[in-house]
Design a protein around this nucleic acid. Structure first.
Length: 277
DNA sequence: CCAACCCCCTGAACGC
DNA sequence: TGCGTTCAGGGGGTTG
């Protein structure tokens, strides 16, 4: 589910609420969601630790502890993090519970169990993939030159390229469609067919769209809790994703649908011209 | 390096 | 209404 804007929202809501709290106890219902170390070592290492900063890198969340220890989380499709009073009944599919000082619990729930947690010491990354991520869209070095150097010779479609976390960190299926629509680029174009001007437009549009959706996604701690950690509010602002068959908000043409790299894609046939051939 | 394919799970929506 | 099928906004691993 969540892509960069939603992960950023979770970070903004939770960080001020959990920072400085102590993890009193860890309860693991499903060991398989803990990628490393094993569940016992995971709980032992965290017990008594004080929570430091919570950061985002791509679609990963990283919670810092003393001595450089980090808890890395990836929510994948259906994972969610909920901070809730300990006396509240557990949501279905709650797999890991962090009991915090003050009576609150931080709970990781995930219907499909694709999400993973890694607890790593300073310098380690344990194949979480976080070390292999490409540039953050908000990195000052993020540029047309960077995109072109990484993708300019690729045969793959530009849409598939935007989904590659090793190139740009944080874009998923929804926002790749929104970005390509905004940039006026047909999603099934081969990356190597893009012009310099188009790379420049993409480099501008990627951070622009992502910040726009981060703002639209803003939510209070109370609303986040009410929605049980699933307060995704961007749907009303999506221009193309989920709107195949509807009118293009810019030109009024009928939005089309394509399958690209096995992923559903929506685009405007007028605003995003397909190559003639 | 790259592309093509496989796998992991549950639940909602769809089609008959 | 019921039931089988398809699809979903994530990523990793293996093979050629």
């Amino acid at each position: 589910m969540p892509e960069l804007p939603e992960i950023e929202t979770i970070r903004r809501v939770l960080e001020p609420q959990i920072r400085g709290r102590t993890v009193e106890k860890v309860i693991v219902h499903r060991q398989e969601v803990i990628a490393c170390p094993d569940a016992d070592a995971f709980g032992r290492a965290l017990a008594g630790q004080s929570i430091g900063r919570m950061e985002r890198r791509g679609k990963f969340l990283v919670i810092g502890f003393a001595a450089g220890m980090r808890l890395i989380l990836h929510l994948r499709m259906t994972g969610c993090l909920l901070l809730t009073p300990g006396e509240e009944p557990e949501e279905r599919h709650t797999h890991v519970v962090f009991r915090l000082s003050g009576g609150q619990e931080l709970r990781f729930a995930d219907t499909r169990r694709f999400g993973r947690l890694w607890l790593v010491k300073q310098g380690e990354n344990e194949r979480s993939g976080i070390e292999r991520l490409g540039k953050e869209p908000f990195d000052p070095d993020f540029s047309a030159a960077y995109l072109q150097s990484r993708l300019g010779k690729r045969k793959k479609t530009i849409k598939e390229c935007l989904l590659e976390q090793r190139v740009v960190a944080g874009i998923g299926n929804i926002y790749s469609d929104e970005i390509l629509f905004r940039a006026g680029i047909y999603p099934a174009r081969s990356a190597h067919s893009l012009t310099g001007e188009e790379w420049a437009r993409l480099a501008e549009t990627i951070p622009e769209r992502l910040s726009y959706f981060i703002e639209k996604d803003a939510v209070t701690a109370e609303d986040y809790w009410q929605a049980r950690g699933r307060a995704y509010r961007n749907a009303p602002f999506l221009q193309v994703y989920g709107h195949a068959g509807a009118r293009c908000p810019v030109c009024g043409d009928t939005l089309g649908h394509l399958t690209i790299g096995g992923r559903s894609s929506v685009y405007c046939p007028t605003c995003q011209k397909a190559p003639s051939r």
